[in-house]
Design a protein around this nucleic acid. Structure first.
Lengths: 223, 223
DNA sequence: CGACTGGTTGACGAGGGTCAAGGACCGTGG
DNA sequence: CCACGGTCCTTGACCCTCGTCAACCAGTCG
């Protein structure tokens, strides 16, 4: 566990100064520094100095990269328990934002890999990084080789798996975020939802609440 | 360095038994076990037990994933000095093959993360894994959001960077592999080569030998 | 009630995939 | 030395999936 890495220093807040609703709380705890972010609040941005790693307490975080012309690719959604913000060279190479109001715990990154780092800590970081790498490689296959319907099916399965395989999903993110995660447009995502509905694979109780009617058939569609 | 991880055990060779040209040499050295693979030789396959990590000595290795219907996504090309084959759970989640005749050194994976692992070793693995993660995330952006021309420009730049920024590139891999790396078809790759040529960005001395005429303009095209 | 954000649906077009033919380059063998 | 076969590459014609543009709808908040 990473709870052993405490810090007595307050994280820099200049990042959030521009944002109308600044983080509500910056509480210290033995486990790190507690921070809250409003919907769409920026946790860190591409190019910023990486001072902390973060663990999600509640809410959902999106991590993304931008092209100069605004095209965006979301590499992951992080749910409670997930960690994010690791960097090799002290500079963030992507940005992280709150999809919904989010609470995280921030740990000082500096020194985590220094001489004094505990072997268990480094090993846990390695495990988490390898899990992230595997997820990202699976996502490469999705983006490089799957069609729109397969992508959405895979997305719903991923969300279901991460919510304890419940068959009624509450999606935290809007269509636009799903599209930027799946390498599609929001219109195509919407059409694929409609198609899954027509195929009898899902029922849309609302735009964000999806009832998966047949998990196995959905799995077969995800290629 | 990983040269401290020696092994006295011979790697299982059943993997290569089916291949007409089996590996030529399996030499032991203090640094690990030397292995050679012919062009298109299989180093390991998806689903196999992961017993070793590999370091490329010479040649080029492709790592890929397959969909049941044969669609393929190459996640990386590995050049001399690169390592590959790390897994969390002792099972390979992708396959590795030699693009050209390849020499690698194989290290026993088992125990690398055990209690006795040196802190430096674990830290080196972490660094390499994080570098791999960063590369993969950059590739997500390419696959999710860039068009065919931008993808090929980015590919050529990546190859140039990894060959010490030389402006004459000797591509080891056929069009088909480039296509499966970039999420395109080989025909589209070929057309984009033609387009870069017409735009005066490259000269094709042969299909595999590319002369980059203006690295900066190419960089501007990669978005 | 109106404004705003987010979602759906339709019409249309473009980028890239598919299918097919032919060319370039190689090692082998007559 | 040249013919042959195999692999790889290029190019063309056509088509389909998904992106673009636009209108409209639904839910929410003041």
């Amino acid at each position: 566990m990473l709870t052993e890495v405490a810090t007595a220093e307050t994280p820099r807040t200049h990042v959030h100064a521009l944002f109308p609703e600044s983080p509500k709380t910056h509480e210290r705890s033995p486990a790190g520094v507690s921070m809250s972010f409003p919907r769409n609040g920026e946790i860190f941005a591409e190019g910023e100095t990486a001072g902390y790693v973060y663990k999600v307490v509640s809410g959902v975080v999106r991590v993304s990269k931008l092209l100069p012309d605004g095209r965006r690719q979301i590499s992951a959604f992080h749910l409670p328990g997930d960690m994010f913000g690791f960097e090799i060279d002290e500079v963030h190479h992507d940005s992280a934002e709150a999809v919904v109001p989010v609470k995280v715990v921030a740990f000082r990154w500096q020194g985590l890999l220094g001489a004094g780092a505990s072997a268990n800590l480094v090993r846990e970081l390695l495990t988490r990084t390898m899990i992230g790498l595997r997820h990202t490689q699976d996502h490469l296959l999705l983006l490089g080789r799957k069609n729109a319907l397969e992508r959405l099916a895979a997305f719903l399965l991923e969300m279901a798996d991460r919510s304890g395989s419940a068959d009624v999903l509450d999606l935290a993110m809007p269509r636009h975020d799903i599209a930027d995660y799946l390498g599609l447009t929001l219109e195509t995502v919407s059409r694929m939802f409609a198609e899954l509905k027509e195929m009898g694979r899902i029922r849309l109780e609302s735009a964000r609440r999806v009832h998966v009617l047949d998990m196995d058939k959905l799995r077969a569609m995800a290629a």
